[in-house]
Design a protein around this nucleic acid. Sequence first.
DNA 1: CTGTTAGCGCTTTCAA
DNA 2: TTGAAAGCGCTAACAG
Lengths: 381, 381
Amino acid sequence: MPRKLTIQDIARLAGVSRSTVSRVLNKKPDVDDATRERVLRVIEEHGFIPDQSATRLAGGRSKIIGVIAPSVSWPLIPTTIQGVLVPVGHWPTIPEIMRGITDALGKTPYELLLYSIDQQRDHREIIQRILATQLLSGLLVVLPGQASPYLLTLHEQGLPVVIIDDQGNPESIPWVGINNYQGAYRAVRHLIRQGYRRIGHIRGLYACSEERYQGYCDALHEGNIPLDPALIEQGDFTVSSGQECANRLLALPEPPSAIFAGNDQMAIGVLAAAEVRGLQVPDELAVVGFDDIPFSAHLRPSLTTVRQPLVEMGQKAVELLLSLIHQEVRPLDPRLAQFTPSAPQTERPTRIYLETDFIIRESCGATAARLAPSDTLHSER
Amino acid sequence: MPRKLTIQDIARLAGVSRSTVSRVLNKKPDVDDATRERVLRVIEEHGFIPDQSATRLAGGRSKIIGVIAPSVSWPLIPTTIQGVLVPVGHWPTIPEIMRGITDALGKTPYELLLYSIDQQRDHREIIQRILATQLLSGLLVVLPGQASPYLLTLHEQGLPVVIIDDQGNPESIPWVGINNYQGAYRAVRHLIRQGYRRIGHIRGLYACSEERYQGYCDALHEGNIPLDPALIEQGDFTVSSGQECANRLLALPEPPSAIFAGNDQMAIGVLAAAEVRGLQVPDELAVVGFDDIPFSAHLRPSLTTVRQPLVEMGQKAVELLLSLIHQEVRPLDPRLAQFTPSAPQTERPTRIYLETDFIIRESCGATAARLAPSDTLHSER
DNA sequence: CTGTTAGCGCTTTCAA
DNA sequence: TTGAAAGCGCTAACAG
């Protein structure tokens, strides 16, 4: 393992001054091609990597990206379906998103600084640390369902921030998420095309649920099916809330023949409720979820659902963040941020909407054929 | 949100010199109590946090801990038990360990730099980056089953390293793990006390499996049960290998009445094999696993197993690492590491063995009573 | 006990 | 196009 090298060493080896090496490293255009070549060869040959602290301190960019995300481990919440417990965690989407982030970041020279949060912990403390330690050159935020008022502070201070699939945050912060409206619209349209006309909906929380609800409404409208308020229940994204809402729906004088749940956990609750009542899924009740958490393919009946491209979301967020970092021209001294023209703010914020996939499995009655549980019958965009 | 402060600012506000502030921050004893008090108050009042890069560059410790761990997301490997798919990931222990780490680190001023690795990726590259960027003041390593020859390099360079539950690494590196021998010994002893005498064992991989095997052998010996080589199979820690090994064991002329699997995944494979053969667990076959992954409590029958205190392992590892960091007296310039007396190396390395719990659930035939699946009948150390 | 001083390795003026 | 020099915020020698 080679010992630590400095620019000094490289300069001596290449027969140039330190500043020239620095120029090459920072891709300045004003270096003679031959010189650049020579320096690059020496750097390559000796595997030189600049000292992060010195770089940052001297006004350069650090090569560290921060990630604020819920704790990677979560308690299992068991629910009985068909006599067997189905454990599903609180935020099953997080590991997938994280995977996308680490995959994308692994191909760059950036390191990942993880700010793991639990429910209780105050984000403010983390934001302060980010500001004070000056370690990051960009920040990714994964806080499903939670808005953080402090993020705006960071963004205003000139730190590039990208929010992944978060709700209710300021429009001005770059964002990567999915088109909830369209995903829901297509799911319900599919049910209608299958011949279902009495379609219940269990709403979830946050802004995304409003969008999904709109998709549900518009699909019904397009299918000339009047909206029946009795068929709409309000859940909270948990399995048990899905089960309770389904119980109410199924107890109606005219119960629905299909239920579109606002997420997969609630759809699992619907399956559990159906089972308790002895209803066959999909023959007597079609069920569609949203998210396509890894577990959904392994349920029996396997769950038809709207797939969020979670890994891709993480990757796209990294790409977006890196592009922001490289284009950004904030003042060198962050304390001057408040005095600089707000040119960046006036630009149109970048919001990336990824497309969902509609994954048709056993629970929606698309077929009577027996499927291998992890198979997908058909998927449509 | 306050703007970035420097030691300079604090010094001015407290009416002292910069070095005095620095002394207070670094807990030097030679500061007047009144002065220290005054400085601390100003720091407190203004929420001052030192710049990491400057601190590190000036020869101080960074407040960053690195963590090398497998990717937080893993593919589900579904297996059929009782007609229902049971998805279990490759390394279900990782999130729990990570939780212990983040919990413990969250109470300190240290940040967590995550080096996420997948199977393919070369550790060498990460080690080089750690060495070159000089970002870390300590490193935690979670690589279940994999030894990394490069870790020794880091350790020798003076970077405090703690390995969590890893196998086959140099004795000289501090380590936190469990007493595999004792866990296995107690599990098998329990089976013997229950009256089982024909007890099969499915071995796993790595050094821990050897230790577990020894525990199995010694428990049999203590119970005056001769070791029957026919009852010992070699698996690879996967569900499917557990199933295959169980199939071989159950096809013996004299099949075992109990099987102790080297980990929970293989125990799940045993349950699957028993089901295929129509064997009732625990009445016709007792099954015991090792690890107590979160899923095991939710199986039906729920799995009797040896619990690893995973969260505690992460916490203890952090504590150990921080103590190493604070006691450590490595030369300021890492390139001098090779020239310094190897005093630290001659010390006895710290190896922390945590105790396991034996968790008795349905699969071991401890009782015929019907249990709520997540309940534990009884646990013994 | 406390202030002054000299760098840590890098980036960025400013001259040449 | 390149080198010399200043300084980022901090720590740790050194004097006082």
